[in-house]
Design a binder for these strands. Structure first.
Lengths: 205, 205, 205, 205
DNA sequence: TATGAATGAGTCTTCATTCAT
DNA sequence: TATGAATGAAGACTCATTCAT
């Protein structure tokens, strides 16, 4: 009757994953999760403080991975653009970082979709916005450097936020519309080309 | 005591509008709506089949207006691009159409935000996707023509869908991030420039 | 199936009365109340906002009656003692007022016991304290006048609060320990005598 | 890692004390207690049969102390009043006993308040009543002797119970309304004076 | 000694919906 | 037209308690 290792917890987590991915945070039912896991409600509350914590646990790995990948992305960008930038290259090192992000997102595909598009109501509902915010800070630095180097005027705040938002949105698109990672990686270069084209247009280059 | 014309119905709609906009479709409470309208639940069900129909009614005007504007947009684009396209112009006639769309969206700002970002759970939760689909059909034609005229290769389906999606997303951004229509119209040219830059980049021009 | 007049509401109220009196506010179960009333949970919430409101409704009549009686009591005392006081009389007009209070309390005996001793957790848990507070204000005036008239020193705040508290406690005793109103009225004179003796002793008369 | 002596048990008791005093018997949560003690639920049930036993353990020392003090009180009173009584003295030997009781109660102040006012639901919820009962038996003897000595008629059962109840209630008042033992001891003489005044009035002296 | 896991019934409350009148 | 009443299932969450290890 008693689980040796984290059997019940895992069953719970697995059932929760399914339910959350199916219904989103708000419409997920803890009852349904417990029933699916073949466990009573009390058991759930032994392992998790509440619905929110259960959700956080389900998306924790991808959340952490994305944050880390984002950190790498930012670090790279800030340093790279300071050294000058070749706008023709479509196989540059930032493509590498983008690839890595895509790989991570697809490793935890469903969880990422959940976190980025169906987390409303949970304490992580602003995860996407926080990603945008982090990116924005970095882009501020980057674009200023480029503007200085090229002698064009700096990007204003509204535009910068818009560009960042769209950047993130394009990654989410890749995530939600590609049937698998291979397709995503195949399309990635076009997305990058598209975004770059947009940036350059706006920056007047 | 009895309403001559649609007084009760209107009170209901007004209250529903507020509640839906505040809470989104799913989290809106019919009870709260009735209470706010000073009317009993039964009355609501006399006028509306269910929650979904009430919601549809609330967003019907903007929904219709957007569809219409979209129709105009499409008609124009299909015809315009067939005549050749001056990529330098940022004040061309498609800017006119975009302006019109922005104006409509801001005329029913709250309803549009509701429809485009908080309709999940209702039968209109895919309204945004249907907009995208319609646009996509038109863009298929347009881009093919341009490609032919310029002698570059046609945009594949995946990319086309992506571009359309982003186009719509950028309008939603304008809607949700501008404090009023004046700001939106001020920023619109930059958004257009950005989108065009992206398109051209992808199309290899 | 549908009740013509307030039948269901009354059944609910009656069941609630029983359950609250039996178990006290906190340990009363709304489920049990509904079951006893032969009604679903939803019905209860149609008539009452929540557990607290249901409770308030159950004790509302006695609560109101006591407040009123207290008002009369106070009015009388403030006026009476201003005219001089005959400490020998045990059948004076304040005995009359006390009688009336006892009568009211016994008219709603169970509800009063509920309100005064088993309301913890509800918004009326401090009803008793508010009674004491009201009495205390009045006694402040009264005792000051007496002290002045007799030339003895005024009762300090701590003592006044204590005396008032005990006064109320003695009425609660009467309520909870008399098998019926007749016994209560029979014992009342002794209680009055006792309280008066205490007051005079403390005031040094 | 393993406690040599009653370390865990003590941690449990300490945490229980806090929780019970904070929330009262019924609203105290064993979970919260275990968590606060840094111990699992099972541990609690190793040391204590159930919630009730844990509670009893928490209040056992003051309960015992009060019983003992009460025993002394009774012994003294029964003997004292048999020798005659000087009603003028406010510094008599029964004042000494009262002082001792107050001292004990304040030594375990929180526990006493808990036992006397927040034990409802536990098997000790009638501890207060049992104190009253014991006192009453003694007072029966005492008052009969006094009545005989003075030639006034005996106190009837109802009145005796009432007087005893009030006596206890006055001690509880002292306990719950004095900020510390010094204030309590300062006020004690007035309380005694008040109670005596009441007794004499009722006994017709 | 104590843990960690699990039970299962219980808490109050909210929901969209129905229907006789 | 509208009301008032009622449904019944579901919501998240807490409880004291048990027991194999």
């Amino acid at each position: 009757m008693t689980a040796t290792d984290g059997e019940t917890r895992n069953k719970l987590l697995k059932a929760a994953r399914k339910e959350f991915i199916d219904k989103g945070y708000m419409n997920a039912s803890l009852r349904a999760i417990c029933k699916d896991a073949g466990v009573t409600t009390g058991a759930l509350y032994f392992f998790f403080k509440d619905k929110d914590e259960l959700f956080a646990e389900v998306v924790s790995k991808p959340l952490f991975a994305i944050r880390e990948a984002l950190g790498a992305h930012l670090e790279f960008e800030e340093q790279e653009y300071s050294e000058g930038y070749d706008e023709e290259s479509s196989e540059g090192p930032d493509t590498e970082v983008s690839k890595k992000i895509v790989e991570i997102m697809f490793k935890y595909k469903d969880e990422c979709v959940l976190l980025l598009t169906k987390s409303s109501g949970s304490s992580l509902e602003f995860a996407k916005d926080s990603f945008i915010e982090r990116l924005e800070g970095s882009y501020r630095v980057t674009t200023d450097k480029i503007a200085e180097a090229r002698g064009c005027k700096k990007v204003d705040d509204y535009t910068l936020h818009y560009l960042t938002h769209m950047q993130v949105e394009s990654f989410i698109y890749l995530l939600t519309h590609s049937k698998d990672i291979d397709e995503a990686l195949k399309e990635l270069p076009y997305i990058i080309k598209h975004m770059r084209g947009g940036w350059f247009a706006v920056m007047g280059m």
